[in-house]
């Protein structure tokens, strides 16, 4: 039996009285491009933080590449790359300095770090900005740098929290190609984004979290079939988009969304 890249069982996180993530059990196979969707505040970032060791679960277990994952699992961390919610950048360094720093923090030797830094800067089209401090980067440039830092050590599992937010269309196209290349070479990608078109195009499997609970999990076709089965005949026969699937599952087509804000002209 093949070892799952990511496996959680009953993953729960409470903040006082609030349960942000409740009893999430999922499995992501190796080599899978996995989309993790949910409305704002659903628990996506909290789940990623737990899966990457930034947040302690209240209960439940996690395994990465078949090994129990805790904050102290340092060897396992070498296999993981992350673009977290806050991007984890160091504002007072330049982009090359930051990438070299990250590479060395992940245990790469100096020569490899330098070589990959240059390649990544070229790839991310940040070579012309090598003297600029990260704090002076635009949001999109910071995203690209965060993504470069997440992959510099060649991770086997990549967690991406909104990686395309603020990135221009040209760069987004390149990033997608790069991520697809990683998948082709056997890496696993766990992606959260609000851009459903990207998920639809890239991800083979999707899970949807709503109010902290996993409400859907499976391949895109499985989700489509599941939602279609609940719809009347004419609608069910149409090929549903991911947006339609998502709205149907999280129930956002209700009265709240249709309410008018009468004071808006």
């Amino acid at each position: 039996m093949e070892i799952a890249a990511i496996q959680t069982h009953g993953l729960t996180r409470r903040f006082g009285a609030l349960t942000a993530v409740e009893n999430v059990t999922l499995s992501v196979a190796q080599g899978q491009f996995f989309g993790f969707l949910g409305p704002n505040g659903a628990g996506k970032s909290t789940t990623i933080k737990m899966l990457t060791g930034l947040l302690e679960p209240s209960s439940g277990t996690m395994e990465i590449l078949g090994q129990p994952f805790t904050a102290g699992a340092l060897e396992l961390k070498r296999q993981i790359g992350v673009v977290p919610e806050g991007m984890a950048l160091l504002g007072r360094l330049t982009a090359p300095e930051y990438l070299r720093f990250v590479g060395r923090m992940y245990g790469l030797d100096g020569a490899t770090t330098d070589q990959r830094t240059e390649e990544l800067l070229d790839f991310m089209q940040l070579s012309n900005e090598r003297k600029k401090l990260v704090t002076d980067f635009s949001h999109g440039m910071q995203k690209k740098l965060a993504l470069a830092a997440a992959v510099i050590h060649g991770p086997k599992v990549l967690f991406l929290d909104e990686p395309f937010e603020g990135v221009d269309a040209i760069a987004a196209g390149m990033l997608k190609a790069m991520l697809q290349g990683m998948i082709n070479r056997g890496a696993t990608i766990f992606l959260t984004t609000h851009v459903l078109e990207i998920v639809e195009r890239l991800c083979s499997h999707v899970a949807i979290i709503h109010q902290g609970r996993l409400v859907a999990n499976g391949s895109l076709e499985e989700l489509r079939a599941g939602v279609a089965s609940t719809l009347p005949g004419a609608e069910a026969s149409q090929r549903l988009t991911l947006e339609e699937i998502f709205l149907a599952i999280v129930g956002a087509g209700g009265t709240e969304a249709q309410q008018e804000l009468s004071w808006l002209a």
Binding site: T52, G53, L54, A71, G72, L74, E75, L76, K77, R78, I80, V82, P84, G86, M87, A88, L89, L90, G91, R92, V102, M105, Y106, G107, A149
Partner: peptide
């Protein structure tokens, strides 16, 4: 104090 969001990197990296 001056790490800002970079603090996350220390927890993400395999460096204790």
């Amino acid at each position: 104090g001056a790490e800002g969001t970079g603090i996350q990197l220390y927890f993400l990296s395999p460096t204790p």
